[in-house]
Each structure stands twice: as structure tokens, then as C-alpha cells.
Design a protein around this nucleic acid. Structure first.
Lengths: 338, 338
DNA sequence: CTGAAAGCGCTTACAG
DNA sequence: CTGAAAGCGCTTACAG
């Protein structure tokens, strides 16, 4: 592993010039530039990140804090963020918080403080006061995805609007008895997503002159099984049965489709189902959904971070652009029968 | 952000002693130890990772190379590895290879070389010669998961054995016409997993005196949809229909269950289905499966790495212990009808 | 545009 | 058990 000195020697310049030529910071004459690059590649020289970080105060590394990894949404965001960071020459250091409270504490009180990162991306994670404070104390750019974090630039879908659009799709097809499978209140932690999606659903109903009927709302846990059980309860009782179900996640919507089938009901003839996510499995189940694009969310968050890390490098992305969502109509929704 | 000097001053010792007391390298008297720790916590001191790395040559960071993130298996392994690294005081730098070839090349030729990591974990990823060589040239501990990597310590399930066990479960129930949905050859890349699982299936049949029937084997792509379509082909033709299906992944097995239902067949009465994985959704579908435990695989790989990074710290894990798999019998398998 | 030199904040032989 | 000091490999004012 050759050092910068070897490159300098081979190129016949000082190490200062090598550093400038390779990093692009500071001016170097074109011909020197070329010579230095050639020498570097001939020797297989790659800068030592710790030496470079120590000297410059920049790490070329971004910390990403994630609550869960083994869920499609999070891992998709992470995938997008990782690809975008790579393109920008940054490493990604991952801090998973799926462990216990002790692990969580150590991430905020120890790991993130060792100056290993230039910036932090917080994925859909509600932070308590002291966690937020230790992030802010880093005095580094932070971007959050998924909900408001006080004092932090965040990127999030408008949950109320998304739920309204989903509900309006069903209303537009002629449904009026529309059930909702929403988030249980213990997921409230997650930026009031359950409350907001329920609010959007009820707002849309009222706007259409339909009075929300509380028994048509069922809380669940965002999983297929949870959606299955909630849908069963909604659908088991023919006289009161809704003609359509809006589920706050695609997994719960898929559970609803399976529950309907098991009850001998046909989707969409007997009951329409719409979800939110654009989950990888939604297409297979013919699920109509409000797609949010998690990969793109991750990429966009990184771009915002890059704008802050390299101001003036280009026109920055506008702050607070709402995240894109898109209604994808498949075969799980149709006008109500008869 | 106080430095080591501030801690030294407050504790009334030299920076050398602070370093030794905090890192645990080298002897420090108990009372000094306590004083240093108190001073450090009073000041909120956390070591600068770049300074420490530069001086010591150790980064306390492990690079993890992953082909995909948004798939359950990979993200579960990653979650396990991340938790285990955290417990050991290590950071995890993630290199996702889901992008194009250029990104892939830059990971191996640039990112991994900047001395940011002490060791590398390669998750279920087939490397070409030059990629492998650049890993080996790092002269750092490497552990692979998922298949043999020449010159690298690897952790993998015995695919032949797992497939045999799955097939034997069906044979034991009395099935003899057993179909298999395996991997298409383009997934061969993945350590011959398709070939090995097929071999295990055929071996088990032959051992039981059953001649493998080529039309009963269908290749697919490991997804629900792929399994669905393959199962449809297997099941659509009553006279030749198998009484049981062994799918090389749980997602394909779930697709098979759904296909059977859509054909009006009952699982397990008309057809039994078994998968491999222990996927998070397998329980919901009542799927009998050969569970492999990806989270644990990730943890175990990290322990092997730690044994190499800190020799003598404890008794090392035995090399080449086979990864645990476990038959989980649910409701998708039963003796053949009639 | 380029170089000499200080300095980034630690760790670790070396000496006692 | 502890300290003084060299050194890890870069970057960047500063000067020219």
C-alpha cells in the first residue's frame, strides 16, 4: 500500500501537489494533474481515509440511522440512499436500532460521536429529546425521512393527502361504505402516521357527504396477518359489510384480499381493496395502491444532504418538496356490484 | 467537543494514560482508571475515530458487501450482523452492489481500499477473480456467507442436505410424485444454489427408490410470482399432477399455495407444499419450511470476524460449523389423499 | 501554480 | 504503572 509520498516522488512533485491534484481542492496545472493521476494509478494509490479525515475534518462518510432493516420499506430507502452516496463518493455507515434500548443509547451517545460521519440521515424514526439533542450537537447536516423532526430538515409524504386520494379513488368508483384498516395507536410513535392516514380517510368521506362510521375502522399492525384479521372482522358480517377497504399499508391490503377470498368473496366484485406503498408484492396480487417510492426517497434525501455538504456545487434541491406518490390502479378496485 | 488533552488535564495525568485507560490497552492502576473515566464522562469526551485509526491502524469498522438490500434474506442477515457489530463496539460500513457494474467496480477498486475497515463481510455474493483478489490484497480478515469463496473463510448452509431433508419430509408423509420448483440457471451465479438444491431433491428421491421425473422440475426466479406460474404449470394437468411440491424458496412456495387455491385445489389435501427459508411471511401462510436463520447467520459471521480480529480474546468459534436449519412443520404438508 | 512545514488528535514503543 | 515524544498519513494556510 503506497503512500502519498511515493506518488509525489514518482510524479516529481510535492505531496501537497499530489493531494491537490487528487482531491480537486486547489489549483494544479493540467499537465501536473495528469502526471499525478498517472503516478497514482500506476502505484495503485488510494488515499487513507483516516489520515485524510484527520487532516481535513471531512470523512466522506454519512451515518444512516434506521429503526428496522428487514422491512421492505426501510431496506428500499436504504438501498436508494446507499446507491446515491456511492455515486457521490461517500461511504455509508449504518446504525440499526432494532436492538434494545441500550444499543440505541450507545448509538447516540457513543457511536455517532466519534466523528466518523460528515452528516446523518434519520430514516422514519421518532427520536426522543435527548437523542435529537445529541444529533443536533454534532453540528452536522441532518436530513430526516418520514416525518417532522424538530430542527431537522425532513422529507415526508403528506399522509393526510395520500389517504384522502386513496379514499377518493374508492368514492369515485361509487363506494360509500368504505372500511379502513389503519395503524394501531402503538405505531403512533411513527410520526402520527396512523392518525394522519385516518384523518385523510375521514376528511375525504366527509367531503363527499359520507359520515364516517366508527365500526368500519379497524386498527392493525401493518402486517399481512394483521390486515387479514382486521379484514375478516370487517367482512364477516354481511349486512354491515363495507363494499371497499382502504388499508394503510400494502401488506395489510394483501391480507385483506386473502381474507376476502377465504370468506368466499371475490375481489373486486364483492369488495374493493386499496393500499398504500407500492410494495414489491403489490403487483402480483393485482393490488391498487398509492405508491410511494422508497428508493427514490432515499436518493432524494442524499441529494439534500449533498447540497448542504457542498454548498454552491450546483443549484440546491428546493426544500420541502413533497415526496411523490402515485395512484396505481390494478384489479383490486372496481365499482361496487349492483 | 473536548479532546484527549482536556481529559488528561482534568484527570491530572498524561494523554498516554488517558488513551490506555479508555481503550483498555496497556496497564493503568485502578484508581487512575476511575479518575480518567470520570473525567471523560464529565467532559463528554469520545475518541476521534480518524485520529485513533491513523495512530493505531485499527478502525473499529467492518465493511459489509451486499448484493441486494430490499430482499428479506439479505436484510435479515444484515440486521443480525449490524446488531452483533454494535455489541462489539464496531461500526458497519455498507457497500450495496445493486447498482451497475461501474458502481460495483468502484466499490472494489476504490471504496474498500481507503483503509476505512478492519475486516470485510461478503454476504451471499459471488465475486469474480479480480474482485476477490482486491479483497484478498487488503490482507484483512474476510468472512463470506452463503457459499465458498476461494481463500475466504465462509459460512454456508449445506444446500444439498437442506433440499434432501425437505424432500424426505414429503417422502415420509407418503408422497412419491413430488414436484420441485427450483432456481433458474441464471441464478447459478449464486454459488450453484439451484444445482445443489436440485441435487438434494433428486438424491432423496433416489434413496427412497423413486426415479426423478424431469417434467416435475420447473425453474423459476425465487419470487412469489415465479413460484405461482411454475406451480400452475405443474398443477394444471390432473393426470400428471404431483401430490406435493418442494419449492427452493418460501416465496416460491407461497406462490405455489396461491396457485393451488386459484386452481381450486386445497392445500394440503390435494397438494402439499414445502419451502426453504423461514421467511417472515411463511407462518401466515401456514407454510411448512426448512428454516434457515438469516439474522443468526449475520451474527455468527461477525463472531468469526471478531475471533480473527481479536485472537486469544476467547475461545474461537469452530471453523466450518454448518449453519443451523430446522424443519418447521405447519399446515401446508400432509399425507397424500386417498 | 507549487512547496515547505505545521498540524489534525490520537497511540505506542521506549525509558523509567 | 506512567510520561515525554515520535509518528500515523494526510491537508492546507502561508509564502513565493
Amino acid at each position: 500500500m503506497p503512500g502519498i509520498e511515493a506518488v509525489a516522488k514518482l510524479a516529481g512533485v510535492s505531496t501537497a501537489t499530489v493531494s491537490r491534484a487528487l482531491s480537486g481542492n486547489g489549483h494544479v496545472s493540467p499537465s501536473t494533474r495528469v502526471r499525478v493521476h498517472e503516478a497514482a494509478r500506476e502505484l495503485g494509490y488510494v488515499v487513507s481515509s483516516s489520515a485524510s479525515s484527520l487532516a481535513s475534518g471531512r470523512t466522506k462518510n454519512v451515518g444512516v440511522v434506521v429503526p428496522f432493516l428487514s422491512r421492505w420499506f426501510y431496506s428500499s430507502v436504504l438501498e436508494g440512499a446507499g446507491a446515491a452516496l456511492l455515486r457521490n463518493g461517500y461511504d455509508l455507515t449504518l446504525y440499526g436500532l432494532s436492538g434494545g434500548d441500550d444499543e440505541r443509547t450507545s448509538v447516540f451517545e457513543h457511536f455517532l460521536l466519534r466523528k466518523r460521519v460528515d452528516a446523518v440521515l434519520a430514516l422514519t424514526i421518532e427520536l426522543n429529546e435527548s437523542e435529537l439533542q445529541s444529533l443536533l450537537d454534532l453540528h452536522k447536516p441532518i436530513v430526516g425521512i418520514g416525518g417532522p423532526l424538530k430542527g431537522v430538515q425532513t422529507l415526508s409524504v403528506d399522509d393526510v393527502a395520500v389517504a384522502m386520494l386513496a379514499t377518493e379513488h374508492l368514492l369515485g368508483l361509487g363506494h360509500t361504505r368504505i372500511g379502513m384498516i389503519g395503524g394501531a395507536s402503538r405505531f403512533e410513535l411513527d410520526f402520527h402516521l396512523p392518525t394522519n392516514r385516518r384523518a385523510g380517510y375521514e376528511d375525504a368521506l366527509r367531503l363527499a357527504g359520507v359520515q364516517p362510521d366508527p365500526p368500519l375502522f379497524r386498527p392493525a399492525d401493518f402486517t399481512i396477518r394483521g390486515g387479514y384479521e382486521a379484514a375478516r372482522e370487517l367482512l364477516v358480517d354481511p349486512p354491515n359489510r363495507p363494499t371497499a377497504i382502504f388499508a394503510a399499508s400494502d401488506e395489510m391490503a394483501i391480507g385483506s384480499i386473502l381474507a376476502a377470498r377465504d370468506l368466499g368473496l371475490s375481489v373486486p366484485r364483492d369488495v374493493s381493496v386499496i393500499g398504500i406503498d407500492g410494495h414489491e408484492h403489490s403487483e402480483f396480487f393485482g393490488l391498487t395502491t398509492m405508491a410511494q417510492f422508497p428508493r427514490r426517497q432515499g436518493e432524494q434525501a442524499v441529494e439534500m444532504l449533498m447540497d448542504r455538504l457542498h454548498p454552491g456545487r450546483r443549484d440546491p434541491l428546493p426544500t420541502n418538496i413533497p415526496l411523490p406518490v402515485e395512484l396505481i390502479v390494478r384489479t383490486s378496485t372496481a365499482p361496487p356490484a349492483g
